[in-house]
Design a protein around this nucleic acid. Structure first.
Lengths: 145, 145
DNA sequence: GAAAGTTGATATTTATAAATACCAACAACA
DNA sequence: TGTTGTTGGTATTTATAAATATCAACTTTC
């Protein structure tokens, strides 16, 4: 990983500075998290922190809500269509017991994944979570499979 | 096609009886059409008529809006993720010039498709339009490719 | 050819999603 | 150790998407 990428994914912003930079309230950030749109880094003390990449992701989400007029539940449903099983190479056997594969309306990273290849993964660091925060990228992925 | 399917896809309901059956207003039906969620049959006189299958589709849409809280633009975006190119076997060459393939946020059946395999198709009769009115089915299709 | 229904278009209402405000308890950091 | 910020709640406000109401011109139907 290059220096640039490290700083990009390094959680360095507190919730209040993230909110300030995004021009939204602290509560809104926690709301997005509760809805499963974002997975901020958490210290042992349970305090959240946000990377530059988190801010980019949040800008996409804000854009979807405010410009594209897609509701939060709409965004969740769109995320739930990401073919995560392709991205992480999830074996057929695992899929049967995976809520992300079988569920509807919620992104895979909002579930636990017992007995799957994702079991011990940290979703915050997963390609599925990181690469497809933009709706456009979801379609590109579907095209590529 | 069996007798049952004929009656199922036969446009027999006027806009007002469709509205009554769905318990919504006539204008709402026209609004859904303007947004590209539905493609009702039209007589030469420009009057709309609706089949039982149209009503089923509309029930799905109503459910997405009222129960799942997905906004109309959200539904449009979800429809736009249907891999239509797979369903209709759209040749690589055609895809480059197809707005449905390259566009974002609008279902393929809201575009014209000059120079593609869909050029002379009536979208109302297309598998892409007919089979995936439910969000759940969209995910099933993505899984199958 | 009169009544009933439909068209598209605009103007208005309503229902509610998204965001804000406020809270007491706890954590971080000078 | 006092100040500043964070936590997870609930209660409230606001912005607006979705639906309704009206309209005159046009079809259909009997």
């Amino acid at each position: 990983m290059t220096e640039i990428n490290v700083s990009h994914s390094e959680p360095v912003f507190s919730i209040s500075s993230a909110a300030k930079l995004l021009n939204i309230s602290v509560h809104t950030l926690r709301m997005y998290e509760k809805e499963g749109l974002i997975v901020p880094f958490k210290k042992e003390s349970k305090q959240r922190s946000y990377s530059k990449s988190d801010l980019d992701r949040l800008n996409c989400i804000r854009n979807a809500i405010n410009e594209s007029k897609i509701s939060i539940n709409g965004i969740k449903t769109i995320y739930s269509l990401i073919p995560c099983w392709q991205v992480v190479n999830c074996p057929e056997e695992n899929r049967k017991k995976c809520e992300g594969y079988n569920g509807h309306g919620k992104p895979c990273w909002t579930y636990n994944h017992p007995g799957t290849v994702c079991e011990n993964k940290n979703c915050r660091e997963c390609e599925v979570y990181n690469n497809f925060s933009e709706c456009g990228k979801v379609k590109e992925l579907i095209k590529s499979i």
